[in-house]
Design a binder for these strands. Sequence first.
RNA 1: GCCCGGAUGGCGAAAUUGGUAGACGCAAGGGACUUAAAAUCCCUAGGGGGCAACUCCGUGCCGGUUCGAUUCCGGCUCCGGGCACCA
Length: 873
Amino acid sequence: MQDHYDPAAIERAAQDYWDRTAAFAARENSGGRKFYCLSMFPYPSGRLHMGHVRNYTIGDVLARFMRMQGRTVMQPMGWDAFGLPAENAAMQNGVPPAQWTRDNIAYMKGQLQSLGLAIDWRREIATCDPAYYRWNQWLFLRMLEKGIAYRRTGVVNWDPVDQTVLANEQVIDGRGWRTGALIEKREIPMYYLNITRYAQELLDSLEDLEGWPERVRLMQANWIGRSVGTEIGFAYGPDLARLMGAEGRLKVFTTRADTLFGATFLAIAAEHPIATAVAAHDEGIAAFVAECKRGSVMEADLAMQEKKGVRTGLHVLHPFTGKPVEVWIANYVLMAYGEGAVMGVPAHDQRDFEFALRTGIPIETVVKSATGAYITVSAPWQDAYGEHGVTVNSGEFSGLDYQAAVDAIAAALEARGIGRKRVQFRLRDWGISRQRYWGCPIPLIHCPACGDVPVPEEQLPVVLPEDLVPDGSGNPLTKTAAFYACGCPRCGADARRETDTMDTFVDSSWYFLRFASFDNAQAMVDERVRYWMPVDQYIGGIEHAILHLLYARFWTKVMRDLQLPSVDEPFSNLLTQGMVLNHIYSRDLAEGRRQFFDPAQVTSTERAAGGKRFTTQLPGGAVVDVQYQGLGKMAKSSNNGVDPQQLVERFGADTVRLFVMFTAPPEQTLEWSDEGVLGSSRFLRRLWTIVHEHVAAGPAPALETSALDGGQKALRRIAHQTLAKVTDDIGRRRTFNTAIAAVMELLNALGRFTDASAQGRAVRQEACAIVAVCLSPIVPHVCHALWQALGHEGALIDQPWPRHDAAALVQDEIEISVQVNGKMRARVSVAAGADEATVRAVVMADERVRRFVGMAQPRKMIYVPAKLVNIVV
RNA sequence: GCCCGGAUGGCGAAAUUGGUAGACGCAAGGGACUUAAAAUCCCUAGGGGGCAACUCCGUGCCGGUUCGAUUCCGGCUCCGGGCACCA
């Protein structure tokens, strides 16, 4: 007998066995329904963090479970290998991003393998590999042909000191993170993908995604944001027509056409052509427009800034009354939504109301509540009346309810050709151009004579040079003639290659298709996609609930429409794992820069007078004050990721897997703490000991279920209850923590079971085997070893998942809870099949029940079969 | 600011369809074994009151529906995620 649990040796042996037998090589049509199990591929940041361990263990549990259920499982793995952190690391260390990335991949692959994941590594892909990203380029060109990809200008964060475009993450409080300079918005040409063309389908098919969490479907639906409203063209007043040099109409989009008669101003975005035209002649307005262009492009910043506006002095004419309506420029109007202009109705919109109070714009009530009360608003302590009601003071449209008013007004506008009902989506087209080096080159050539010329297909891929080191002052590709200097494919003249690269969301929008066609050098995807897709189970962080999942759904539909092997929806079932959060500590350096610390290094904590917590930490003996920043997601940029490697080395992969699955249900946010990991280690040692003590006594005799005594039946009942519960918890509920708790209870029962008789040993043998099977998806190495120790032929991974024996669950007596007036008062035992009358009689005969009911006459008795009786007195 | 979640013992959590609140585990305390420690095993444990039988309170806060609410509804507070260039 191996008398002590040695995870290192056990895990090596099990992993050797799986490697030797190529146990996880996925082959099409190898019997059983296919099950494509996919976890979101990692960014190779350097080391795994606990979020990865959680993600990949969940996937692995499901992959192994489904395999034992007889499915043909594919679980692949890849690397989301392009991105900003590689450039930052390059700047810090002077190492090219390619080298840094590949080193990280090699290290992290070893870490993943040490976890014993049932992955088909033959299918491994890295998005920075030209053999992968050439297909990004190829499909982009197909999209260009179809008009799905197009070029227009877009707004970016501009750092005037480094003369470079910054990502939102690199803008802190409106300043560049390296220079501390105030950030400006800048408009530059970019390529866009026309995702809005698919907005309706992306919205509609959410309804069919029954295997997705409701909250994700809701978030996506709100993000797409379909609204039905009315487009209204306000005729230019004479002053505006003069400025613009022609008659014209200023279009707005509104969902509240019923309030049109209350529109006392129009507000346009600072980027609106009219704003640009006014600013050219008016210094004050030019200053305001310039002010709006300062700061970052982030929506959160825009939405929280103080609402400001400036009067243009220009007017449009109300379409029904002909009255002049003032035009304002406001910082809260988004050029990207609707027409970049809104009508302001202070009486019926809270934001407009507050704006009007500050600026003296008139407030005109045009809707009253349907119940009749006449509502007027005009004072600062009041609120706008934003409810749907009945129109008043609206000329021929007065006295109508919301829908009737909207319909009548839209019809009247349409009859005059100055407005119409239409659908507006909040979703915007996807800008994919990035002014960065470490990404997939956009395959275009700019020719002075021919314009933008696509790179011919036979010249793909446009290979990214891998030896450049960025220095923070823009994209090094723009300084590398060997990359950008080229001939025009059309006329042969000297031309310049596009130096922008693609958003890394492009790389992750179709990698799940490539896993099915991983070795095809001739085509992006092939017929094997039709076998494996859609992904049966996708697992990843809730932080990807909108962007990644929406882009992947869009890209999949585009490929379908380009007649490539694809599907309508890529992911049938989605499990969004909760974030693994950790505490964040930092200190401020000069120039608004900030240094982050590993929480494990923070040694002592004191509370400062100001209320914020300051702590002291000792990296290599030095003591510095650090600031507590609260809880946050584990990220390389805040240096708060826990390295699971130390835990794996100390306790073994099984302990780490068990712990991370036991600590919380998968969808829940997890505040990281490695207290408790000892308990998981202890449990596995106990499991090892109990099974080996049983095995040491020699082979168990055959089980005879008809010959069992009460204690033997009881253990067998627990074992089969556990099997049934684990099957349901993993297979349906995905609550791995409760599955583990159930097995712990079974193991506790096994520990108390001392029956050394022949049938006692037979029951124990069966129970031990059930434990090994139930835990094998979660802690596969130790279960692999225990299965052998229990004397079984063949590997546990190849065993079919057993069904519980329903006969073992039968109980003679059951317990009924008794409440009096809804409060728990007693418990009574009744025969398992007892009818209601019998149960009532037993309950009323119970001494405790009689005491609580007393002399009172029961008014009512609620009976929940086999569970509960509530006596109401 | 907007959209989406979450809140239950000292801690992580459980309660699956409105029906026994706190399963399972961590940390803690007590005990056994041991020269000792580690390891292991046993016991205790939501809070208050009571010698005890027992009893009252208790699932973020306020209110509602119900025989019965951690669970459903309305209103808040705090925390987390996302907000289109972090991935």
